[in-house]
C-alpha cells in the first residue's frame, strides 16, 4: 500500500510541477503548485509528519497560495506571449541542471543505506512531538521567526503605501 500511495502521489507531484513550469497562464501555474503542495502533504503523512502535513495545507496551500491567486486576479495577469529572449542562458543552464539532477539522484541512490525504508507508522511526529521540540530546544529560533514575521508585515505595509 505504501508503494502504491507513494507512486501515485509522486506522479501527481511531478506532473503538477511540470505543468507549473510549462503553462503560460499564471493561474494555471498557481493551481498546479497547489496540486504539488497537496500531494506533498500526503507524502509527509506517509513519512509520519502529521503536523507538518496539516501545516503544509493550512499555511502553504491555504494562506500563501491564496495570496498568489489573489494578486494574479487583482493584476489580471494574462499569459506570457513571447518566449524569453535570453536563449543562451537557457541553453547553458538547462543541461547543467539536468546534470545536477542526475548526479544528485545517483548520490541519493548509492549513498543512502539500502536498508533504510519508509514504513507508514514507523516514526510519527505529531503536534505533541513537534511542539515539545519547538518550545524547548528551538525556543530562540522560534522567537526570532516571530520578529521576522513582524518585519515582513511592516515591509508589506510600507510597500503597499500609495507614494512609492
Amino acid at each position: 500500500m505504501d508503494v502504491v500511495l507513494f507512486l501515485v502521489f509522486a506522479a501527481i507531484a511531478v506532473g503538477c510541477a511540470l505543468n507549473l513550469v510549462l503553462q503560460t497562464h499564471p493561474i494555471s501555474s498557481a493551481l498546479s503548485l497547489i496540486g504539488v503542495m497537496g500531494s506533498l502533504a500526503v507524502l509527509y503523512l506517509l513519512l509520519g509528519g502529521e503536523f507538518l502535513a496539516a501545516v503544509q495545507l493550512i499555511v502553504y496551500a491555504g494562506a500563501i497560495m491564496v495570496l498568489f491567486v489573489f494578486v494574479i486576479m487583482l493584476l489580471n495577469a494574462g499569459s506570457e506571449k513571447r518566449p524569453s529572449k535570453k536563449v543562451l542562458r537557457t541553453a547553458v543552464a538547462l543541461p547543467l541542471l539536468f546534470t545536477l539532477a542526475g548526479v544528485a539522484a545517483y548520490i541519493m541512490a548509492t549513498q543512502v543505506p539500502r536498508t533504510e525504508a519508509v514504513r507508514f507508522g514507523g516514526f510519527t511526529a505529531g503536534p505533541y512531538e513537534v511542539g515539545r521540540a519547538l518550545f524547548t530546544t528551538w525556543l530562540l529560533p522560534f522567537e526570532v521567526t516571530s520578529i521576522l514575521i513582524l518585519i515582513a508585515i511592516l515591509g508589506a505595509v510600507v510597500l503597499a503605501r500609495k507614494e512609492i
Partner: peptide, 10 residues
C-alpha cells in the same frame, strides 16, 4: 484522526 482539528482547518 489524531489531527482532526488541523484537518478541519486545512
Amino acid at each position: 484522526l489524531n489531527i482532526g482539528i488541523l484537518f478541519l482547518l486545512a
